[in-house]
Amino acid sequence: MYNKQAFIALYSILAKEVSRYFRIWVQTLLPPAITMTLYFVIFGQLIGSRIGDMDGVSYIEYITPGIIMMSVITNSYSNVVSSFFSAKFQRSIEEMLVSPVPTLFILMGYIFGGVSRGLLTGIIVTIVASQFVDFKIHSWPILFFVVTLTSMLFATGGLVNAIFAKKFDDISIVPTFILTPLTYLGGVFYSIKLLPEFWQNVSLGNPILYMVNAFRYGFLGFSDINITHALILISCFIIALLSLAYYLLQKGIGIRS
């Protein structure tokens, strides 16, 4: 049974996490704003104006949800993977391990920290986007639901990566070689309907495609993917990764001798 003390502990972990990424805001909050501004200028305005409409909306409007989602995914993941690995590396994770914080609350503390950075970055990029495109929102609930679940999923993924990581190289392998290619091929910049049938089917195996399209649905009201299928898939991934992360933390894998 979890009492008030456990929630104070959760608040402490979350406060520590939030203060960490605010302390290094030049590394955490500023880069997405600059990078995404470049995306909007280059792909949205310069190149986008020559591409024309995509699924009945301007190209810049089409790519806006994907670009926001891309920054949410990257920041949720990188916040937890670097924070948890650095706690392992400096052994400050022992502060929590010797204390009576329940494993579930350590897990939640790190994930909520990652989600908070992911959502904050999403808001920053949305503000940047609003300078370039006059977008409208089709469904606020779906938008909020999808972005929060996706952020949670990648924050958990970052935690699992950090638990297994033994050196700093190990925390950059997944983002560089898996996450970035899957994001770029996940329908951020194009509709999969433009692809030959074979590659359309291959693309359906990319989980990020579902998240980007579900998010795009929240903005624009259309998607390459069935929105219900997308939400079920994201939920299944979250349950699987959360269970794995909880098991690993409870067993002390990578953090206890």
């Binding site: 009492n3 008030k4 003390q5 456990a6 104070i8 502990a9 608040y11 402490s12 972990i13 406060a15 520590k16 203060s19 960490r20 302390r23 650095s86 706690a87 400096q90 052994r91 400050s92 022992e94 502060e95 929590m96 204390s99 009576p100 914080v101």
Partner: peptide
Amino acid sequence: NFSQFETCLQIVVNQAGYYG
């Protein structure tokens, strides 16, 4: 085994928080 980047006060107060 504390964070190199946190202040003394943050380290001690956060640790108290972990104990509720």
